[in-house]
Nucleic acid binder design. Sequence first.
DNA 1: CCACGCATGTAATAGGTTACATGATTTA
DNA 2: TAAATCATGTAACCTATTACATGCGTGG
Lengths: 197, 197
Amino acid sequence: MSLDNILLGLLSRPASGYDLKTAFDHGSRYFWAAELSQIYLSLQRLEREGCLRSKSVTSSRGPDRRVYSITARGRRRLATWLMDPPPFGQERIGYIAQLYFMDVLKDLERTREFVCELRRKFLERIRIYQRIETETYESSLADDSSLSDEDFHRHLALRAGIMTMEARIRWCEEAVARIRVRNSPTRARRAGQKKGE
Amino acid sequence: MSLDNILLGLLSRPASGYDLKTAFDHGSRYFWAAELSQIYLSLQRLEREGCLRSKSVTSSRGPDRRVYSITARGRRRLATWLMDPPPFGQERIGYIAQLYFMDVLKDLERTREFVCELRRKFLERIRIYQRIETETYESSLADDSSLSDEDFHRHLALRAGIMTMEARIRWCEEAVARIRVRNSPTRARRAGQKKGE
DNA sequence: CCACGCATGTAATAGGTTACATGATTTA
DNA sequence: TAAATCATGTAACCTATTACATGCGTGG
């Protein structure tokens, strides 16, 4: 249901399903992901419900495009969603779940590698976000008043992505340090608390 | 699919569906959420697949309980999942999505309240996590070597929850400060970049 | 001429939520 | 005796993923 709302938000300017997928993969990747096939299904549903209308547009390069625009009804639905209280407590963070149970592998070296890989991914991501920030919101770093309301909100959202990534990277570093100490050959009395086996 | 894996992880000790729901609502809430009905369905599926077996246990208080335990096959499946690379790029953060589009409401005061409400929720959560930390992992704050492998991994996961919440709270504060400046009556030349209307 | 990017879609399946249905025991 | 907690489950529905199917135009 939220994908539908996000599509309505993205369609403040008319776009095709394909355009929307690119928008997801660029601007909106840090808070939502969607497959192209799901986007097409959502668009069809929204049009059936009268929240969108579409027209087929012949393109100079490539096949015809179905371009969707939002209707008054769609705008009302978007506004309703935006007035909803923030949804909460439905986190699904697969890699933390894996880590939580990873003791059953009895291989701290593997745990360390897992966290290192996470750190690499987080760094990759934060670089993308930071590039967007300097390229798109450079001016606001000193002074917000030069931003439109739209860009102001988008920049707030981007900051959430950046600050979350920073925290996750710090967490990885803290974790790796602890794992290293625990796993180091210096700790001679390792049988002390070791359970099982 | 991941819920199935998490249930297998949680079932290192036998438990009923109801027990598992409580485990979710307490220990595992910061990385995964699940409804009771979905837990029952997952348990049935896992038993059909031979990853779990169950027996009915007559309880002194309340109705009979169906207690599940993990099989060798289940343990193999759990280990396979734990060797998978961390899943990535499937974030779904509804409240950031809302904020991202909230400019269409043309009401910065509402944006501010939204972020304040988020902050309150985050604070509520972090207090829970911190209580778990001091109550359960107090000893490790100075010295990890006193922790079992199991507790060590669980504490790493909890730290991720705490550090993420800290970052989100800081973000809320940064955002509220910026919104206040932008929304203050001091800013006389607000027509400068305002678009639409 | 082939691979790649553009572009749209369907079908099968899996995963998850909400509502519904049931009933025992304990505590106020 | 009424409400809360313990306890298990089904049915209807919705959402999302994966795989499949198709085909144009451009650049190498």
